[in-house]
Design a binder for these strands. Structure first.
Length: 803
RNA sequence: GCCGGAAUGAUGGAAUUGGCAGACGUGACGGACUCAAAAUCCGUUGGUAGCGAUACCGUGUGGGUUCAAGUCCCACUUCCGGCACCA
């Protein structure tokens, strides 16, 4: 009898062996085909790993282990995205330097990850807070600056009142800070911005060339929010000025009965003297300024606004004067900050017109504008619209654009919802922005020789009361000389957001110890692009979009070989608590991976996470189900007591074995890990029913199971007497011929209902099958005395239609 | 409101993409082993009726297409994600 399966001993043994053999380190032999598998490097929080990390990691670990067995040179690296607020907040509280906290947290993460047996290439570990790494983050920033893609702007930013830090739009969730949940308000600050909008169209277009799961593509497209339309100039009566608007419905121009400007529109100040109700206007603007973007958009109900008395616009289509209003439903940050209002065909304009009794003119027939706005573009026909009358909406748009261009008062225009990326953080624990401000020369980049610009040692990490970072108090560090003129200059005290280091880390993995370049061109040519990248959906509009943008920029300036960083992007579903709710400390339903590993071992844990359900769907945790996975590994372990005296693959197991090889091979590739594992369970059940297994059959099973449960399978492989460890073995191939059984059981339907089963020899033609089935005794009771109208034989089904 | 995803036994989930619904696991029940328990092994387990073979019903709801629908079409309901006054 074999010994009991002792997961601790087995797993420790093999983890040590792998480390000593360095068998998962990527080779620099560039003649072999490569595979670059990637998972999002974790933020090393104080809490350690949660159950979601191993889900993503195991999924790609399986693919990487399989690829190695298929002969690929595999790069599967790991690192830490370690700049960020929780560490800094902890430092503020305790006074311990964030670098020190980071180091401790990384040590914990590393040991947890090693305990789970992932086949990472640990020799390539990166850490975004290491000056040797962030030197290159700063370097790339300088390249962006050099090419005009980094600029400083006075803009209203999202400001978290609790973190005292500016946030990108992507980091604001329901008017609250994504990280701490604090209230977010608008604050005007001078901020570094990255011109991601310059890449908006390419970020959409190039999605066609990559293999991302569809929901990632759609979500990115929606976030970028392309919309096609036209810009149109409306003359302001009695002035030389034009009020420019953006519209997607220029076909409805004849129906524009008033205009609305955002309360921040510069024309309001400009025409202050003409505005007769200035006090009222000013009061409205002040009230709007006090509201955050969130408040302004949250209360979708009541429309508010004030007319600008004394200022009228002229509808260029009708020549009529129409009033100009201001309202906070028009955003200064989109389009031109002003709109033409067509209440008959826009629901917001309709609500506004109803609230303030403004005229509603129908210009697209087909709805009932007495009741509601008619916004359908498919069925309507133009009316009350001069030269557009009778046209369909799409035709009318084209004709209107042509007319506008001819008149010189408008043009085709594409707008995007995507905004430029607010890149400054008023925080200590981030990459310093390597620029200095000189009175004479303005913003001057540091020369490359001065990189990395290292964070200075300070005692107090708290942001300053004026909202600037703790760095603003490091006077010695701040005061420097201008690299250009040698005069006195000051360093930038804002740091980069934590998305900076993660925007290019996959490049560093290709050549992580290079101190001359961020990565050698040779390494990049060989390894890039990432072949398969798995990560969370929450990063779709943040990290994935940002890193695509950086990568495209680096491609444009000739530093990387591919226009896209990731060839394939997949995403896992969230693991919920046992009660089906999201895991959280406050709900008290958090599962700690350490506990599970201690109880049943890393292999069982990995196996369970892969077996739980569809990889991309959310699914609840169940510790009892996890124990079922442990039970399966116990059954596999005991197969060593069931070794047959025979050898080779026996005929009666051949179909079952090859079926399993095929199923597992294909299902791994499709991330259908749950059904792959079910197939192996079925095979083991077959073996138990049969009573014994040969060494060769067992070895095939172990090879297939190895990517999911690497430790136990290596141990059994060794116990079986195989000298080559599984990690150095070859992935098995299935034999299609072996899959064909000698007989097939057909389900026989009569009028669509299964009535009988008939076993016939395999490989019969359709006609022969039909003849045999109609003659089969099991079928007779159902067709006797009836007319057989039709017989359909498909796959394993024969349907007989009788009357 | 818009864009995605989902709804299948007590339960997590399968179903070769139109072809025998419920694979595999959990739980439950029964049996074997044991002085006993645990562990293990072997069964049973969608519902209703029947001793039974069997019959009828059954994939959120209502219609439809088809020899055949969990799968396709139309109209809904509920839940989960994302976006949201984007002109």
């Amino acid at each position: 009898m074999s010994q009991r399966y002792d997961h601790d001993a087995v797993e420790a043994k093999w983890q040590k062996k792998w480390e000593e053999a360095r068998c998962f380190e990527a080779s620099e032999d560039h003649s072999k085909p490569k595979f670059y598998g990637l998972i999002e490097f974790p933020y090393p929080s104080g809490q350690g790993l949660h159950v979601g990390h191993p889900l993503s990691n195991t999924a790609i670990d399986i693919i990487c282990r399989k690829r190695r067995m298929e002969g690929y040179n595999v790069l599967f690296p790991m690192g830490y995205d370690a700049f960020g607020l929780p560490t800094e907040n902890y430092a503020i509280k305790t006074g311990i330097h964030p670098a020190k906290v980071t180091e401790q947290n990384i040590a914990r993460f590393r040991s947890q990850l090693k305990r789970l047996g992932f086949s990472f290439d640990w020799s390539r570990e990166v850490n975004t807070t290491d000056p040797g790494y962030y030197k290159w983050t700063q370097w790339i920033f300088l390249k962006l600056f050099e090419h005009g893609l980094a600029y400083k702007a006075e803009i209203p930013i999202n400001f978290c009142t609790s973190c005292k830090v500016g946030l990108a739009n992507e980091e604001v969730v329901d008017g609250h800070c994504e990280r701490c949940g604090g209230e977010v308000v608008q604050k005007v600050r001078s901020q570094w911005m990255l011109r991601i909008t310059a890449y908006a169209q390419r970020l959409i277009d190039d999605l066609d060339a990559v293999d991302f799961i569809e929901r990632v593509k759609t979500q990115q497209r929606n976030w970028i929010g392309r919309s096609e339309g036209a810009e149109v100039d409306f003359a302001l009566a009695g002035t030389e000025d034009k009020l420019r608007v953006f519209t997607t419905r220029c076909d409805t121009l004849f129906g524009a009965t008033y205009m609305v400007m955002s309360p921040e529109h510069p024309y309001i100040e400009k025409y202050r003297d003409r505005i007769e109700n200035w006090a009222e206007v000013q009061a409205y603007r002040e009230a709007a300024a006090r509201k955050s973007d969130f408040e302004r958009s949250e209360l979708t109900k009541e429309k508010t606004g004030v007319p600008l008395k004394g200022l009228n616009a002229v509808n260029p289509a009708t020549g009529r004067e129409i009033p100009v209003w201001i309202s906070d439903y028009v955003l200064m940050t989109y389009g031109t900050g002003a709109i033409m209002a067509v209440p008959a065909h826009d629901t917001r304009d309709y609500a506004f017109a109803k609230a303030f009794n403004l005229p509603i003119i129908e210009v697209v027939a087909g709805g009932d504008v007495e009741k509601e706005a008619f916004t359908d573009c498919e069925t309507g026909r133009m009316v009350n619209s001069g030269f557009l009358n009778g046209l369909e909406v799409e035709q009318a748009k084209e004709k209107m654009i042509a007319w506008l261009e001819e008149q010189g008062i408008g043009a085709r225009k594409v707008n995007y919802k995507l905004r430029d990326w607010v890149f400054s953080r008023q925080r200590y624990w981030g990459e310093p922005i390597p620029l200095v401000h000189c009175e004479k020369c303005g913003w001057v980049p540091l020369p490359e020789s001065e990189l990395p610009l290292v964070l200075p040692e300070i005692d107090d990490y708290t942001p300053s009361d004026d909202g600037s970072s703790a760095l603003s108090r490091a006077k010695e560090w701040i005061h420097t000389t201008c690299p250009k003129c040698g005069g006195p200059a000051e360093r930038e005290t804002d740091t980069m957001p934590n998305w900076a280091g993660s925007s290019w880390y996959f490049l560093r993995y290709c050549d992580p110890h290079n101190d001359k370049e961020f990565a050698s061109r040779e390494a990049l040519d060989y390894w890039m692009p990432v072949d398969w990248y798995n990560g969370g959906m929450e990063h779709t509009t943040l990290h994935v979009l940002y890193s695509r943008f950086w990568h495209k920029f680096l491609y444009d300036i000739g530093l990387v070989p591919t226009p896209e960083p990731y060839q394939k992007r997949t995403s896992h579903g969230m693991i919920l608590g046992e009660n089906g709710e999201k895991m959280s400390k406050s709900r008290g339903n958090v599962i700690n991976p350490d506990d599970i590993v201690a109880e049943m071992g890393a292999d069982s844990f990995r196996l369970y996470e892969m077996f739980m359900g569809a990889f991309d769907q959310p699914k609840p945790w169940s510790t009892t189900s996890a124990r079922g996975c442990r039970r399966f590994l116990d059954r596999v372990w005991r197969l060593q007591d069931m070794l047959s005296a025979e050898s080779g693959v026996r005929d009666d197991l051949k179909a079952s074995l090859h079926g399993m090889i095929k199923k597992v091979s294909e299902d791994y590739e499709a991330m259908k890990y749950n059904t792959a594992i079910a197939a192996m369970m079925s095979f083991v059940n077959d073996v138990y029913a049969k009573g014994d297994i040969t060494k060769e059959e067992f070895h095939a099973l172990l090879t297939l199971l190895n990517p999911v449960a690497p430790h136990i399978t290596e141990e059994l492989n060794e116990l079986l007497g195989y000298e080559t460890p599984l990690y150095a073995s070859t992935w098995p191939k299935w034999d299609e011929a072996a899959l064909v059984a000698s007989t097939v059981e057909l389900g026989v339907q009569v009028n669509g209902k299964v009535r009988a089963r008939v076993t016939v020899p395999a490989g019969l033609s359709k006609e022969e099958t039909e003849t045999q089935v109609l003659a089969a005794p099991e079928v007779q009771p159902w067709i006797e005395g009836k007319t057989v109208r039709k017989v359909i034989a498909v796959k394993n089904i024969v349907n007989i239609v009788v009357a």
